[in-house]
Design a protein around this nucleic acid. Structure first.
Lengths: 153, 153
DNA sequence: GCTTGACCTTAACTTTAGTTGAGGTTTTAG
DNA sequence: CTAAAACCTCAACTAAAGTTAAGGTCAAGC
């Protein structure tokens, strides 16, 4: 199990980048942001543990769900430092994001379902419109007073 | 129908902003970007036709769907200039965006469905993973060679 | 009639997620 | 052994979507 050198143990930044399909500059950037880390060779070049590949994959996936890097970084920080994350660790991460994703999906779905109903009618600019005012933040400002003011056509 | 002044015909920038729940600076910004327009008083203050309220509402909604302002602007430009848009005009707009929305929803749904399957297993960094490589852009690079390289745990 | 609040313009600043370039070093291949 | 490819750092730039500040004008209330 410990045959050294048979598999290359560490990856250069270029290898990491091309395997992940991202730019070298992005790898640098993620490291600067603390999302991934590396050690250095004598010649000061980065060497990455192959575990970084999975992290980068996860970063990419999480970004697609709309999660900002700062949050991704925070989530990655919760992973055990210095021990290789287990399947359970990853699952915890993904289930957290799945909730986010579900919420975003629901939001967009509601949006879609309202889109046709609201956009063509007069209600869109009005406190009562579920699209325009989904959180009902304007409720109680005097009901409906605004409603008529839009009837311009 | 032409009783002047009974309803205030034009809105100041502050009125527009507070009615739409956005900042004055944002109204200025949208005007600079050509998304909305105004006329000026003798004293050089903006006055907005009330139709701008609906446009702003639509801008807000479209932004929530993830459409960038540039595209929103382009869509608004397709509306008839100088005539008040009809319900049909708005419907065309919304149906266009509905397609976008549907696509984004589908994307996120696929993502969600893959999230648990992939994140915990070894496949995430690999060309074969549907999440990581949804467009199959790496297909044909030599099948599976990368697959084993991730098995670090 | 003056003071305050709303408005004006222009320019600079903010955040996120990187990219690009300059100038210099290391590694690798022939 | 040398030349090219890959790497290094640091600073500046980009884009989107605004916000904030500075310095000045306009309008409304008392």
């Amino acid at each position: 199990m410990a045959e050294k050198g048979v598999l290359q143990r560490y990856l250069s930044v270029g290898e990491v980048a091309s395997r992940c399909g991202i730019a070298v500059s992005a790898v640098h950037f993620y490291e600067r942001k603390g999302l991934i880390s590396s050690i250095r060779t004598d010649g000061n070049q980065r060497r990455f543990h192959r575990g970084v590949l999975r992290k980068l994959a996860i970063i990419k996936v999480a970004q697609k769900t709309g999660i900002p890097l700062s949050e991704i970084g925070a989530a990655l920080d919760e992973l055990p430092r210095n021990t290789v994350p287990t399947a359970k660790d990853w699952e915890q991460l993904s289930s957290q994001w799945r909730d986010d994703l579900n919420e975003r999906i629901e939001q967009l779905t509601r949006l879609r379902d309202q889109l046709g109903k609201c956009i063509g009618c007069g209600c869109l600019s009005i406190a009562a419109c579920p699209l325009y005012n989904p959180d009902d933040t304007l409720a109680g400002d005097g009901p409906g007073a605004r409603l008529l003011e839009l009837e311009e056509e």
